[in-house]
Nucleic acid binder design. Structure first.
Length: 493
RNA sequence: GGCGGAAUAGCUCAGUUGGUCAGAGCAGCGGAAUCAUAAUCCGUUUGUCGGGGGUUCAAAUCCCUCUUCCGCUACCA
């Protein structure tokens, strides 16, 4: 069985779950569900990143033990998953013992390969900005932000990132699909070409992290720790079942860590590189940047409470080109709900099932279907959808499914089963048979994103345990359609 | 500053390698139908494809330039 390993980033627990986390997770979930339906052996990984100075400090401020602190905040992220109906296979936490083992192991491998050395990190540091500045950035003894800086020297382990500049460029040239979208790849390449410096990969100023093997005074750099989770979950350092990853889904802000540092670490460790890293964009809210101070941060839990997981999932995947930034307008979500979900799709199901339930006691005959054209359209759609998923054109995926929905509504209007009922009952049966088949197919196509309502539709047709293979099977007509309930409640905007 | 990207109908945006590419959805308007959550279907208006210049038989699509906006330009994650 072909394997497919997809990941979200592990979410930094110092944040509360917001719409951005939900977005990445929903996208990954949609792809993972599609691949499962398509017969792949899938592992969908998500989790939490729990080490680092900020987390340590937050625990201190809260006056609790760091481990107790992260247990609690990690749970916030885990709790989000069922809310947005994300069906992960593994929820990885970087404070798990197996992860410490894996991370310390990879450290030793990098060290054994001569890529780690002890030196000292020197630079101008601003406590206020929590950042180092290059000498060239210092103006009149101050940071570009105007903050005071001080000269700091700290003992640190370094990773020979500079050694991997050419190998990385080579690799990305030979694997043009390894970073997407194209624009993001260019950013990465220009970053690498501008020259890679060795990377400081340990800290001594705080202790909440994984100790460096053989020198417990040092804590590992959080990104080395965090990135390693992708192989921990796959079984590292034991034999790995799901490596390399098929797809790392990331936000555009953490591209460099995934496309420069991570591949370099893997090269050094002698491990294969992930097949593809895809960076998506960010949401703004009603035209403005989301921020705590503006108070316009969108809470996914509240959103789902009001509109349901299906609508939220659909909206986020449909509204913007995956990879671009997008604006979150609540009015647009309502329009999508009303015009796409309720009017086009929900009403298609409603008008057909209600007709059968009302006029035919819910029974249809198994009449051979001669309307090849529209059925072919439906069967052939799977190929288009595979391409959409593999290129992460998730918005196209939904557009393509809706084209079939529109075609099905056109078919209803053109065939007029309500007229056929009086004039050609046999033909009416055939048309209804075609329509139920189309509805089944569409529900299957939508099931990676409209997880709940698709299931409801399939239940109305008395179909269980579908995969994409079901599409090729004839519809079972030996059943009774009961009077349907509307699939979606309109917002009425 | 350097590198890169974007500017297309009222709104949100599609437009691979230059030749039905001037499009879709939503909104608007007109009509049909009445199975259905007044849900559907058909038809239809608006565009100097950011400005200017160039290459070409042919450019939204390539080149130059200008304007505006955005991203990246390493050690918080």
């Amino acid at each position: 069985m072909k394997k497919f390993y997809i990941t979200t980033p592990i979410y930094y627990v110092n944040d509360i779950p917001h719409i951005g986390h939900a977005y990445t997770t929903i996208a990954a979930d949609m792809i993972a569900r599609f691949k499962k339906l398509d017969g792949f052996d899938v592992m969908f990984l998500t989790g939490t990143d729990e080490h680092g100075q900020k987390v340590g400090k937050s625990a201190e401020i809260a006056g609790v033990d760091p481990q107790d602190f992260v247990d609690k905040v990690s749970q916030n992220f885990k709790d989000l998953m069922p809310v947005i109906d994300a069906q992960y296979d593994v929820f990885m936490r970087t404070t798990e013992e197996r992860h410490k083992t894996a991370t310390q192991h990879i450290w030793k491998v990098l060290e054994a390969n001569g890529d780690i050395y002890l030196d000292s990190y020197k630079g101008w540091y601003s406590v206020r900005d929590e950042a180092f500045y290059d000498a060239s950035e210092i103006v009149d003894g101050k940071a570009p932000t105007g903050a005071p800086v001080e000269w700091v020297e700290e003992e640190s382990y370094f990773f020979r990132l500079s050694k991997y500049q050419e190998p990385l460029l080579d690799y990305f040239e030979k694997n043009p699909g390894a970073i997407a979208p194209e624009g993001r790849k260019n950013e990465v390449l220009s970053f690498i070409k501008s020259g890679l410096r060795d990377l400081s990969i340990s800290r001594t100023t705080f202790s909440w992290g994984i100790p460096v093997p053989g020198n417990a005074k040092h804590i590992m750099y959080v990104w080395l720790d965090a990135l390693t989770n992708y192989i921990t979950a796959a079984g590292y350092p034991e034999k790995m079942n799901f490596w390399p990853a098929s797809l790392h889904l990331v936000g555009k802000d953490i591209l460099r860590f995934h496309c420069v540092y991570w591949p370099a670490f893997l090269m050094s460790a002698g491990l294969p590189l992930p097949e593809r890293v895809f960076a998506h964009g960010w949401w703004t809210a009603e035209g403005e940047k989301m921020s705590k101070s503006l108070g316009n941060v969108i809470d996914p839990v509240k959103l789902v409470d009001e509109f349901g997981a299906d609508t939220v999932r659909y909206f986020m995947m449909r509204e913007i080109s995956f990879g671009n930034d997008g604006d979150f307008y609540l009015d647009n979500l309502k329009k999508r709900l009303d015009s796409d979900l309720a009017n086009a799709w929900g009403n298609l199901v409603q008008r057909v099932l209600a007709f059968i339930a009302k006029n035919l006691d819910g029974k249809i005959d198994d009449i051979p279907q001669t309307d090849e054209e529209i059925l072919k359209l439906s069967k052939g759609l799977i190929n288009t959808l595979r391409q959409d998923i593999d290129s992460q054109k998730l918005h196209h995926y939904l557009e393509h499914v809706f084209e079939l929905i529109y075609a099905a509504n056109q078919y209803v209007d053109a065939q007029k089963p309500w007229t056929l009922r009086r004039e050609a009952p046999k033909r009416m049966m055939e048309v209804l048979h075609v329509l139920l088949t189309l509805i089944r197919d569409i529900a299957i196509y939508l099931s990676p994103i409209l997880t709940r309502s698709s299931k409801k539709v399939l239940e109305m047709l008395h179909i269980q345990g579908t995969t994409f293979e079901t599409l090729q099977e004839p519809l079972n007509t030996n059943m009774t359609i009961t009077p349907p309930e509307p699939l979606f409640q309109k917002s009425g905007v």
